[in-house]
């Protein structure tokens, strides 16, 4: 963990009634270093928070905006919950898989895109919904999905 990250995390502690409450924003800060969180980083976090490494790892793996393995430069996540699925999200995901030549959960060989499926993004009224690098893309069809993916560098 870089010293600046550590300083930023320590500054967070004051904002929460319990130190432990700062764990989520702290994980974001650590993840910003290399795009994912390693076991060593999780152990460093645990030490900083007076937690067991396993506690940090349970939180890390619980949320799907945290990554425990190296990721592509861009993230494309397709919501596959019920409303999106009713509006064709599963077919959409298959088409993106075919377009990129990878399966959900994998990264393209050039490290450009990591593809995944997502639980509910809370935008069922505009299903199907994609999350591209943290940005919502709504009412997406196959053509729009290809355009979005191809625009990523």
């Amino acid at each position: 963990m870089q010293p600046e990250t550590r300083q930023k995390i320590e500054a967070l502690f004051e904002q929460y009634p319990e130190k432990r409450g700062a764990l989520l924003p702290a994980i974001y800060l650590v993840q910003a270093e290399q795009g994912w969180v390693s076991a060593e980083q999780a152990e460093a976090l645990a030490e900083l928070f007076d937690l067991k490494p396993i506690d940090v790892w349970e939180v890390l793996t619980f949320y799907n905006m945290f990554y425990t393995s190296p990721q592509g430069r861009h993230h494309v996540y397709v919501c596959t919950n019920l409303p999106c699925s009713l509006r064709g999200a599963r077919g959409l995901l298959k088409q993106i898989e075919a377009h990129l030549g990878i399966r959900a959960g994998q990264t393209t060989e050039d490290g450009r895109v990591t593809l995944g499926h997502e639980e509910c993004l809370g935008s069922c009224g505009t299903a199907p919904v994609l999350r591209v690098d943290g940005r919502y893309c709504e009412n997406v069809d196959a053509q729009e999905a290809r355009r979005l993916v191809d625009a990523l560098e």
Partner: peptide, 10 residues
């Protein structure tokens, strides 16, 4: 010793 945990969810 806290070696074990439940990872992922649902």
């Amino acid at each position: 010793t806290a070696e074990l945990g439940v990872f992922q969810r649902g």
